[in-house]
Design a protein around this nucleic acid. Structure first.
Lengths: 165, 165
DNA sequence: ACATGATTGCAAACAGGTTGCAAGAACCAC
DNA sequence: GTGGTTCTTGCAACCTGTTTGCAATCATGT
C-alpha cells in the first residue's frame, strides 16, 4: 500500500482486542460494565468494517434497546474506544479503536452493494499543516472517503442495499 | 495555493453566472422556468459557499414551500447545475456548478461558527486510479472535507451555530 | 387563448438520532 | 452478603432533515 504522495499511512485493525481489555478500559473511565456494553464491544471487535447503530442492534438480537445502542456508542466515542465514520448514507458507522492506533483511516465504499474496504493511505500531515496556516485555522482534521463500484457489482452480480454516490 | 503533492487542483467559482444562462440550461433540459426555480438559482449564484435547503428557503422569504426547495435542488443536482456537499452536520449543502467546471472541490469548515472556506487543492487523480486498480473498483470518486477552528473563534470571539467536529 | 403535463403547496410520513423519566442494574462500602 | 448510591436501561415521545401523495396551479407548445 503506497499513498498519494508516497508518504503517510495509518496501520490499523491488526488483531482483535481481547474483550477483557476493552471492559477494563470501561472501568478505567469509571463506566459500568453492563451486558449491553460488553455485547456491543464484542460485536465490534469481531467486525473489520464500520457498523451502524442499526447493524449493531441487529447483531445483538433483542439484547437491548436501540436507544441503548445509540447512547453507548456515543459514550464509547467520547471515551475514544470507538471511532465514528460517515460513509455518506446518512447513518453513522463505528469501528473499534486500539489504544495504540488513533483509528484514523479511510474507506472505499461500493455504491451498489455497500461493500467497504479499509484504506490506510492518506495524504501527508504536512499538507494539513499548510492548509491550517494558509487559512489561519487551528486544530485541523479531515474526513475522506472513497466511493466506487466493486468488481462483483461491475460484473453484474449485484446484491444487497446501495449507499449513495 | 499548492497541494498535497504539488499537483492537482480545481479552479472554480470565478464569476457569478448570469441568471439567464442558468434558466436557459433549465430549458435545454426541458424543465420549466418557474418562479421558485429562478429564485433558487439566483440565491445560489450570489453565494460563494454551500447553502442548505433551509438556508435557501430562508433566503427566499416566503416565496415557496420548503418541500419545493428540496425537490428543486434534487432536480438541479440531477441536471448537474448544482453540486451536493456533506459538511458533516447532517444537512445537505449545495453550490452552483459552472458548465466548464465540474464543481469538484473541498471545504474547510470551522467547527465552532460554521464558517466555510473553499479549498481548491486535492490529491492527484493518479492516486485514485491506483486505489481503483488495487482494489478492483470502477468509477472511483471521493469526498473530502476539512474541519478546524477559524482564527476568530480561536481568539475567543465565538458566534453563531456550530457544526460537528 | 387552450390543453396538457410539469410543478407547487400542504400535510402526512419517514429515517436517523436524542431525551425525559421511572424502573433496574453495577459497584462501593461495610 | 446487604444496602445504598449512582449509572444504565427500556420505553415512548420528540426533533430534524428529507421525501411523498394528492389536488390545485401554472409554464409552455400549438
Amino acid at each position: 500500500m503506497n499513498n498519494p504522495c508516497g508518504q503517510h499511512q495509518h496501520p490499523h485493525r491488526l488483531i482483535q482486542q481481547p474483550l477483557d481489555e476493552l471492559t477494563d478500559r470501561l472501568r478505567r473511565h469509571s463506566r459500568r460494565v453492563t451486558g449491553p456494553r460488553q455485547a456491543i464491544l464484542d460485536v465490534l471487535r469481531r467486525h473489520q468494517t464500520p457498523m451502524s447503530n442499526r447493524d449493531i442492534h441487529a447483531a445483538l438480537g433483542q439484547m437491548c434497546d436501540l436507544a441503548t445502542v445509540y447512547r453507548n456508542l456515543h459514550t464509547l466515542e467520547g471515551m475514544g474506544l470507538v471511532r465514528r465514520f460517515d460513509l455518506g448514507d446518512g447513518a453513522a458507522r463505528f469501528e473499534l479503536v486500539t489504544p495504540e492506533d488513533d483509528g484514523h483511516h479511510h474507506h472505499l465504499v461500493c455504491t451498489r452493494c455497500s461493500l467497504v474496504v479499509e484504506i490506510d493511505d492518506c495524504f501527508p500531515p504536512e499538507f494539513e499543516q499548510a492548509l491550517a496556516q494558509r487559512h489561519r485555522f487551528a486544530r485541523i482534521s479531515h474526513r475522506l472517503e472513497f466511493f466506487g463500484v466493486c468488481s462483483r457489482c461491475e460484473a453484474g452480480e449485484s446484491r444487497p442495499g446501495p449507499v449513495e454516490a
